[in-house]
């Protein structure tokens, strides 16, 4: 009797958590996505490439390593829907936007950490799980790193000298 009562409490608690995760998590996710989209617009013309070679004749004033990282937690609703998904297999749609947000946020932080850079070379992204267990997904860390290049002559000066 006592046992079934505690199971009942546990079940209703999990239900509340899942509901909370659905309501709050969804709102937070869409807010973060809007924020990322807005910030990405500002850097639309800034080249961030994954190649290593600099195809530019302009003299380089500064080249240095920059990185950006973020840890994003999964919500209870996503954990629940993914556990259902695991029964039948297939794509876990809930996790895709989570990882996408983490990576884009990391890239944005990398760009924002070097406001005077003209170009980012050799961008690398890594993702790692930092909590949770083998069965359950926890939070993920995304790190982006690249070499920030600053040219010594600004385009305006180039036009005058040539």
């Amino acid at each position: 009797m006592e046992h079934s009562l505690s199971t009942g409490i546990q079940l209703s608690l999990s239900f509340i958590f899942i509901l909370l995760g659905w309501a709050v998590g969804k709102k937070r996710e869409s807010r973060h996505c809007r924020d990322i989209n807005r910030r990405e617009q500002a850097f639309r013309n800034l080249p961030v490439v994954t190649t290593k070679h600099l195809h530019d004749e302009r003299p380089v004033e500064r080249a240095h390593l920059v990185h950006g990282s973020v840890v994003i937690a999964v919500d209870a609703f996503k954990v629940f829907t993914s556990s259902l998904r695991k029964l039948v297999g297939g794509e876990m749609r809930g996790y895709a936007p989570l990882l996408d947000r983490a990576r884009r946020e990391a890239i944005l932080r990398l760009i924002e950490s070097a406001p005077d850079a003209d170009l980012f070379l050799n961008l690398r992204i890594e993702t790692s799980k930092i909590s949770g267990s083998a069965q359950k997904m926890g939070s993920v860390e995304a790190i982006a790193y690249a070499t920030a290049i600053r040219f010594s002559a600004s385009p305006a000066n180039d036009a005058i000298s040539s």
């Binding site: 998590g25 973020v70 937690a73």
Partner: peptide, 20 residues
């Protein structure tokens, strides 16, 4: 704090700083 955040999602600032 991270356990609570794991219910509602979002950034874990404490962990971000720790790893940095």
């Amino acid at each position: 704090a991270a356990g609570l955040k794991n219910l509602v999602g979002g950034e874990l600032r404490g962990y971000t700083e720790l790893l940095q």
